[in-house]
Simulated assay, not measured.
Amino acid sequence: MPFVSIRDLRIAFDEVTVLHGIDLDIDPGEAVGLVGESGCGKSVTWLGALGLLPRKARVAGSVTLQGMELIGAPRERMESVRGARIAMIFQDPASSLNPVHRIGRQICESLRLHRGLRGQAARAEAIRLLDMVGIPSANTRIDLYPHEFSGGQCQRIMIAMALAGQPDLLIADEPTTALDATIQAQILDLLADLRCQTGMAMVFISHDLGAVSAVCDRAAVMYAGRIVESGEIGALFRTPRHPYTRGLFDAIPDMQTPRGPLVPIHGTVPDPAHLPAGCAFAPRCGRASDLCREFGPDLKPIPQGGQVACFHPIPLPQRQKAFA
C-alpha cells in the first residue's frame, strides 16, 4: 500500500485550472523527483495536498495518507499530519525562518508541537538535530539569529526543523536553488544521508535534472499542470520517451565536447487561462500532428516500464527494441 496516494488532484484559482488531474503514489522509504519548468504545478501539487493554499483555491480529487483522506479533512487532522507525518522544506530559507527569533527557539517550537518536548530536553534535541545536519559548534550557535548564518547553513537549519517532527515523508521544494554549486552538492549529500539514516520517504522538487538523478529512485516530469512522463530514474534518463522530457535533456550543456550552441525548447509554457486545445505541449513540439492539436493524450503505461502521455513518443533505439 502506498504511503501517500494522489488521485485526480485538480486545483483552480479564480476559475482558472492550474492542475489537471494528477495521479501519483509515494511508497514508504522511496525518493521521487518532480521535474519541470516554473509554473508547471510541482509545488502547487503538494501545497494543495497539505491544505496550504489560500482559501480562494478550489481543490478537488483525493489525497490519502495510508488510507486517511486529506482533501477536505478537518483542521485538527491536518495539524496532526503537517510536520509530524509529512514535513516540507520551502524554497527560500531566508523567508521561512523568522528573523527576530533565535534558531534554537524556532526548532524547539517544532519539537514542542510535534513531540511534546520542552525545556532542556527540547534544547538538547535541537542541538542534536543541528549536529545531524552539519552545523558546526551547534551547542553555542543555537542561540544565534538567522542572519548570522550563511544561505547554505540556513537551508540546513530548515532541514533540522523539518526533521524535528520525525516525519515519514519529507517534501523538499527546490532546496538547492539559491545555493552555489559546492553547497548544492553538500545539501544533496545531506538529504541522501538523512534518508538512509531515518528511512523516510522523500519528494524532491527541482528544475535540476542532475540533482534529481543524485537523490531519487523515480521521477515524474510535469508540464502545464499535468504529469507527462514518469518512470525509474535509470530508464527515464537513459531513454526519455516524451518530446518535452527529451527537450529538457537536450537543453543541458555538454561539458565533455567543444562549446556549441545551446538547444532550447522553443516557445514558452502556455498561460493556464489560455491553454491550447489538445496536448498543451503541441505548439512547442516537433513531433505534433493534427491528432495532438485536437485531443489531449492520457498518461498510459509503456511496455518498457514507466508511463508517458504522448500520441507520438520518441522511439527506442534499435538495440533496446530488441530486448524490450
Score class of each variant (00 low, 15 high):
L194C: 06
E174I: 10
R238S: 15
Q166W: 11
V203W: 02
P240G: 14
L209F: 02
Q184N: 12
F249L: 10
H147R: 05
A126T: 03
D193V: 13
Q155C: 07
E232S: 15
D189F: 11
E174M: 09
G116L: 07
M200E: 09
F149D: 00
I157S: 13
G152H: 05
R218T: 14
I233T: 15
I127F: 03
S213W: 10
L179D: 01
R123W: 12
E229T: 04
Q106H: 11
V228P: 09
T177G: 03
D168R: 14
L191N: 02
E174Q: 11
I142F: 02
S213Q: 13
G134F: 04
I233L: 15
I135S: 04
D217K: 08
I142S: 07
H242T: 04
A220Q: 10
E148L: 09
R123Y: 09
R128D: 10
A138L: 12
Q120L: 14
D217Y: 07
I205T: 03
S206P: 07
L129Y: 00
I103Y: 08
M158C: 15
H101S: 13
A214H: 05
C196E: 14
A122D: 06
D168E: 15
I233Q: 15
Q153W: 07
A160T: 00
S150F: 08
D208E: 03
I157T: 12
M202T: 06
I142A: 05
I127L: 03
D143W: 00
T177L: 04
R226F: 02
S137M: 07
A219G: 14
C216A: 09
P167I: 00
A211F: 11
L209D: 03
A124N: 08
P243Y: 03
L248T: 00
P240Q: 13
L130D: 05
A138H: 08
M158W: 05
T177H: 03
L169Y: 07
T182R: 07
Q166H: 15
S230R: 05
R105M: 00
I103W: 10
A219C: 15
I103R: 13
L163T: 07
R195P: 04
L169K: 08
G165T: 10
P240N: 14
I233E: 14
Q120S: 14
L190I: 06
L163D: 05
M200D: 12
P146G: 13
Q153K: 08
A122I: 04
L194V: 06
I127Y: 04
L191D: 04
L179M: 03
